[in-house]
């Protein structure tokens, strides 16, 4: 486990926030929503991998 993942997610969040602001100002509300959705899905794929590894580890540790 490393802390890089934390920074990666934070970077995606900041990037998506900036893109959302810029696209909103440019009057492209729909594309702004699409970028938000894409960022959300990307981070979700990152997080789900870790959650599954957490479940596996707990299962082996506590012999569930």
């Amino acid at each position: 486990m490393n802390v890089d993942l934390l920074f990666k997610i934070a970077a995606v969040g900041i990037l998506v926030a900036v893109l959302h602001q810029v696209l909103c100002r440019a009057g492209r509300e729909e594309q702004a929503m699409m970028t938000t959705l894409a960022g959300l899905v990307i981070v979700l794929t990152l997080v789900i991998k870790e959650i599954s590894s957490l479940f596996d580890t707990v299962r082996t540790l506590f012999s569930l």
Partner: peptide, 14 residues
């Protein structure tokens, strides 16, 4: 983006 804050808290907990 409040939804990304939840992701960060999950990952830091893990």
């Amino acid at each position: 983006r409040p939804e990304f804050a939840i992701y960060i808290s999950i990952i830091s907990g893990i």
